[in-house]
Simulated assay, not measured.
Amino acid sequence: METRRVMRGSHSRKTAAFVRACAAYSFITIPSLSSIFSRLSLYLLSGQVALANQCLSQADAFLKAAVSILPEVPRSISVDGKLRSSESFLLDFINNFLAMLLVVPDHPEHGVLYLVRGLLNMVQDYTWEDNSDAKVRVYISALPLLAAMSQETYLYSVPKVDSNETLYGGDPKFLSEINKLCETLIGQILDHLKTLGRDEQNARRQGTIALSLFAVLLAHGDLRNNKLSQLTINLWNLSHKHGCCETRISVRTLESIKHQAQQPDMAHLSDTVQRLTLQSRT
C-alpha cells in the first residue's frame, strides 16, 4: 500500500511488477501458517491490497484460496489456552468477506457472481455445530450484499477498478441472476424456520431469525411487491408469535417504519405498517 501511496494510485511498469511480486510472495507463504484464521485473514487482507493496486488476477486468487480452505475450519479452536467454539470467528470472517465482494468484479471465465456462489456453496456444505443457526445467518447476511449489487451505483468502490456495476451496466440478465439467488436464499431460510417451528423449545430461535430476516427485507427489499410485502408481515407475526420479542424494540421499529412511510418515495410502507401489530409477551 505504501507503493500505491507513493505512486498516487497510478503504477508504472516497474511498480506494477513490484506489487505483483509482493502478492505472489504472500500467496506462496500464507499456506505455511498453522493457524487457519490467520490464513483466512491474510488471504482476505492480501486480496484487498491486491485489488487496491489493480492486480485483479492476484486478488481473485487470494479470495478463491480463502473460500477453498473454509472447510478446514475446525468446530473448536484454542483461545488463550481454552477450547472455544470457532463459529463466531467464522461468522465474523464471512461477514467481512461478503463486504469485500461488492467491489470485486466477476471473472470473465467463471460466470456471474461466481465468488458469491462459491462462498455460499462452502457455507452450505460446512459441518456446523448441532442445533446451530449459523448457516441461515450467513444467508441473511448475504441478502444485503445482493441488494447492493443490484443498484445502479454501488455504495463504495475501489479507484481504477471497475466493479460489476460497470461491467454489467444494469444488464437484466445480471439482475435476474441476483433475484434468483435471493429467492433461493430466502427459500432456505424459510425452510429452516419451518423446521424450528416443529419444536416449541425452538420458539425463541425461530422468532429471532424471523425478526432478522424481517429487518433485512424491510431495509433492502422492494415492498411495493405484494408477495414480498406479505412475507415481511408474516415474518413480523412469526417473530412475535411466542412473545419472545421485546415490546420496546417492536414499538421503536414500528415508529421508524411510520417515519419512513412519510417520505414521498416510501408511501407504500403505510399499508405495510398498518398490518403490523404488537402482541403482548406471554
Rank of each mutant, 00 (worst) to 15 (best):
I233M: 14
S157C: 15
L90P: 00
Q260A: 13
H107D: 14
E183A: 14
G47S: 09
P159K: 06
G170P: 04
I36Q: 05
L175Y: 02
L42S: 06
L90G: 02
L102H: 06
L213G: 02
Q48T: 03
D125G: 13
Q262L: 13
T272A: 04
S280V: 02
Y168V: 10
K227V: 09
Y156W: 15
D92S: 07
I69P: 03
T272L: 07
V216A: 01
L211G: 00
V161G: 04
N95K: 05
M7R: 00
A59F: 04
V19S: 02
T166N: 14
Y168W: 13
L101M: 04
F18L: 15
L91Q: 02
T166E: 15
L175Q: 12
Q48H: 10
H110G: 01
M122N: 14
S88W: 04
V161R: 06
R75F: 04
L102V: 03
N131L: 13
I189L: 05
I178V: 08
A215W: 00
L269S: 11
N237T: 03
T166V: 15
L91C: 01
D191V: 11
N131D: 15
A219S: 09
K14M: 13
L113P: 11
M266C: 13
S229H: 06
L42G: 00
V19M: 00
P108I: 00
D80C: 01
L190F: 00
R198F: 13
S12W: 07
I209M: 05
S85D: 08
Q151K: 12
G243H: 02
L238E: 02
T247Y: 12
G170Y: 10
S280I: 06
K258R: 14
L44Q: 09
S12R: 01
L101D: 01
R137L: 15
N95C: 10
M266A: 10
L143R: 15
S176K: 05
S239F: 03
L44G: 09
S35R: 12
T277L: 15
N131M: 14
T277M: 04
S157N: 07
L83I: 11
